[in-house]
């Protein structure tokens, strides 16, 4: 589903070049889940962004759903994201101008895969019934992140990328949200890559990798 081969990434900073990823390779099979752990600044978010085609590696190749991301034009990468990827951010990134239901269906519509029944099911599964007409800022943090998960899964992407999905939530809510995320991923047989520093998040996943100073320190389990 997702394959990174010898990926290198260096950022130019005012303090000089900063090596963020150094020869990183990993694979994620369809339906598989993987946790990527590491300290702040270890490069895990960059890895996620590269995986999503939001940025390009300096060296190495990234293959997503059979396509080499590094060789795609930007518009094709955007198309790939629309259709093959679900993204969940720590900060939710809901669209404040859209209602709950419109937020939920936004990516599905963009991908032209809007499915009313599935959306309705998701609303029910996410516990957002009766809140469809509300605006994101009128929801609690947990509800917002559930909505973000729903938005990512609405087009039934084969791969879901999540960046600290529970980082902004309290412990109880985080547990509930994580549980919901995993069960939905299982239902949709979607591959999952979660970037987190929380062992609780990593624990239920199929695999766990650790990133330190831009390098994977324990290879494939």
């Amino acid at each position: 589903m997702l394959e990174l081969q010898q990926v290198h990434k260096t950022y130019t900073t005012p303090q000089g070049p900063l090596k963020v990823l150094d020869d990183v390779s990993l694979r994620l099979a369809p339906g598989q889940s993987l946790a990527l752990m590491g300290e702040s600044g270890s490069g895990k978010s960059t890895l996620l962004h590269l995986a999503a085609g939001l940025d390009l590696p300096d060296q190495g190749s990234i293959t997503l759903a059979g396509q080499n991301v590094s060789t795609l034009a930007e518009s094709d990468r955007a198309k790939l994201r629309r259709e093959k990827l679900g993204l969940v951010f720590q900060q939710f990134h809901l669209v404040p101008s859209l209602t709950v239901i419109d937020n939920l269906r936004l990516q599905a519509r963009l991908a032209n895969r809007d499915d009313t029944d599935w959306t309705a099911y998701l609303i029910a599964r996410l516990g957002l019934e009766g809140l469809e007409k509300r605006y994101p800022e009128q929801l609690s943090g947990g509800q917002q992140q559930r909505l973000a998960i729903g938005r990512a899964l609405a087009p039934r992407p084969p791969l879901l990328l999540a960046d600290e999905p529970t980082g902004n939530l309290d412990e109880t809510t985080a547990g509930e949200v994580l549980e919901l995320l995993l069960s939905l991923v299982r239902e949709t047989q979607c591959a999952l890559l979660v970037v987190t520093h929380s062992p609780q998040v990593a624990a239920p996943l199929d695999r766990c990798l650790r990133l330190r100073h831009g390098q994977l320190i324990n290879t494939e389990l």
């Binding site: 518009s75 955007a78 790939l80 994201r81 259709e83 993204l87 951010f89 990134h93 669209v95 963009l110």
Partner: peptide, 14 residues
């Protein structure tokens, strides 16, 4: 800041 997530969701910058 509001446009960036949309871009992340797959809407081209142009």
């Amino acid at each position: 800041q509001q446009l960036a997530p949309l871009w992340a969701l797959g809407v081209p910058r142009a």
